[in-house]
Design a protein around this nucleic acid. Sequence first.
DNA 1: GAGATCAATGTGAACGCTAACAGTTACGTT
DNA 2: AACGTAACTGTTAGCGTTCACATTGATCTC
Lengths: 337, 337
Amino acid sequence: MTPPKRRQPVMADVAKEAGVSHQTVSRVINDHPNVRAATRARVEEAISRLGYRRNLVARALVTKRSRTLGVVSFDTTLYGPASTIYGIEQAARTAGYFVSIVSLKTIDSDNVRDAIGYLAEQGVDGVVVVAPQRSAWAALESLPAGMPAVAVEGAHHGGVSAVSIDQIEGARLATRHLLEQGHDTVWHITGPADWLETEGRIEGWRAVLEEAGRPVPEPLTGDWSPRAGYEAGKSLAAMKGVTAIFAANDQMALGVLRALSEEGVRVPDDISVVGFDDIPESEFFSPPLTTVRQDFAAVGRHCIEVLLRQIDMGPAAHERLVVPPGFVVRSSTAPVG
Amino acid sequence: MTPPKRRQPVMADVAKEAGVSHQTVSRVINDHPNVRAATRARVEEAISRLGYRRNLVARALVTKRSRTLGVVSFDTTLYGPASTIYGIEQAARTAGYFVSIVSLKTIDSDNVRDAIGYLAEQGVDGVVVVAPQRSAWAALESLPAGMPAVAVEGAHHGGVSAVSIDQIEGARLATRHLLEQGHDTVWHITGPADWLETEGRIEGWRAVLEEAGRPVPEPLTGDWSPRAGYEAGKSLAAMKGVTAIFAANDQMALGVLRALSEEGVRVPDDISVVGFDDIPESEFFSPPLTTVRQDFAAVGRHCIEVLLRQIDMGPAAHERLVVPPGFVVRSSTAPVG
DNA sequence: GAGATCAATGTGAACGCTAACAGTTACGTT
DNA sequence: AACGTAACTGTTAGCGTTCACATTGATCTC
C-alpha cells in the first residue's frame, strides 16, 4: 500500500480532480479562449483546491522559451550599474520576464564570454551586457549563435545592438557651462582607462576646448573613486591658475571638493567644479554639485525594448539607441573672478 | 530531401558523433568517474566539434534542481541592498548557483508573496528575501511548502532563517562614542517607520542614553534620503542645546552636514555628527564622517551559506546569524566644548 | 577454470509540460 | 434530413535530460 506521497501536484492531478484532460488544464492556465466557462471554473477550482503551481521549467523545455533574460554586469555596487540594472529588472518584469544576473569582479573578454555561456546554458531568451569597458567587446563578437543581445554603452561597436547615454554630449555640456562662466580653460579628472565613458567624456571635453581655441590641460587619470578625486584635487590645488575642474563622476567630484576645502580653496569662489552622474547625494555636497544627469532608468527600459524586439522579430535589426544627458546647475560653479 | 536543419546540437547528436550512447555523454558532462579516458576524450572532442552546450532546463526538469536561487529585494538602488545582493551573487556563483532577482518598488506582504510565488514557479531552489520591513514578514510565514528561504534583517522573526547585522549594537556604538566625547545627550534622526533597521537603531540609541541616565530627546523621523537629513538638520540647528546628532544612515548624515553648514554651525566644533553604513563617499564628506560600518558582503555570503545548508540538509534547522557592526571614527565628532 | 566482482557502457522510462492533431458535440443552412 | 462549420475537448508525441536498471567484458579469487 503506497502512503499518500505529498509531492507537488502536477497538471495531471488537476485534470483528474476536475474531470478533464490535462490539455484542458493547460488551456485554462494559458488563457486559451476555447474553453467553456463552466469547465474553466471547474478547473480553476481544482487548481486552488490542490494548490497547484505551474512548472515553468517543464514549459520552457517544450516551448524553448524561458521568459528569463540574462544580465552581465560589472560591479553592481556602483551607482550607475545598480541603477541601470534596476531599470532593466523593472522593465523586464513588466514585460513578463525574469532577470538572471551575473556580476563580474573583473572584466575581461573571457569572463564575459563565460558569463554569457552560463546564461545560454540556463536557457535565457536574451542577454544584456552592462560592461562599459573596451575589454568586454571581444566577448560580444562571439555570442552563442542566434542569441539576442544588447550592450549598454557599447555604442561604436560592430554587430550588436546597443543603448547608451551620450557621453560626449554630457561632457560638452559640462565644459561649455564652465567656459560660459568665463573660465579660461577647464581641467579634467578622467575615469579609468579602457572605459568607454572615460573616453567619451575626454572627447567631449577636449572638443569644446579646442573649438573655443582654449588650451587643453593634461587630464588627470582617476578611477571613479572619491579618493582618486581627492588626490587629483590636491594636485590641482597646488597648481597656479586652475579655476575650473570637470570630474568624470560625482564621487570623484566629492573627493575634489574635500581636497580643495582642506587646502582652503573656496568652491565656487576660487574654483568651480562640475561632476557627472547626478547621484542622489550630490545635491547635498558642500557646496551642492553642478553635474551632468544620466537617466539610467531610461537606459534600462530601452535595453529591454530593444532586446524584446530582437527576441520577437528575430536578429534582423541591430539598433543603436542614444539617450541624451541632462545638466543640472547647482552651487559648485560660478562666474570667474 | 531534408535541408540540414541548423538547430542546436543535443546530447543525442554528440552521442552519434562520438559513437557512444547519450548516457555516456551525460556521464562525461557530469564528471562521472566510470568512463574510460579514451571514451571521455572522444566525447569531449565531439562536444567541441559540434559546439554542443548542455541544456540546463532539461536537466532541471528531471533533477528537480535548477541551481538557481531567487532574490527578492526592495529598491536595489540603495547602497545597502545593492551591496548585499552583490555579496549574495558572488557567493552563489562561487557555489555554482545562478541568481534570479526580483526587485520591488513597494513592499507589502502581497508583493513579496507574489514575487516568491513567481520564483517558485520558475523552479528556484531557494530564496533570500532582502526586505527589511515589518510588512514583508507575513509573506515569509506562507512560503510555498518546503521552499528553503533566508531573510536578511528579519532577526526577531518566527519560522525562517535570518542573517542580519546587529543594528542595536551599531546604534550603541554610535551613541556611546558621542557620550564618551562628553556630550550631554544625543539627538537621533531615524529611518522610515516599519523598517527593522529603524527600530533597532532607535532601540540601541535609547538604551545607551537611558543606561547613562541621560534625557532622551524626541527622535526626528527621516526616510534614508539626504533631503530628510537636511530638513532634520535645519530643525536641529534652530534648537538650543543640540551638540550631538546620530543619523540613522550616512546619506541623512550628509544632509545634516549640509544643513548645519548653511546655518553656520561648525562640525564638529559646535555639533558632532555620526552616521550609519560607511558608504564609500562618507570618508570624503565635509568633514569626513564618523560612522558605523556594516559588512554587507559578509551578510550576502552568510545568506548563501545558510540557504545552501538548508537546501542540502532539508529544512531542519532554522538559523539566526548576526554579523557584528564596526565603528570608524573620522572628523565629524569631537569632545564637547 | 567456474563463479564472483567490478568497471564501463547501453536501454528504456520518466520529468511536467505544450503542439499538433483528432475527435465530439451543437447549431445553422439548404 | 443531410451536411458543413464552429466551439470545445481529448490523445499522442515529443522537448533534452537524468535515473534505474540491464548488459557486457575483464579481472580476480580459491
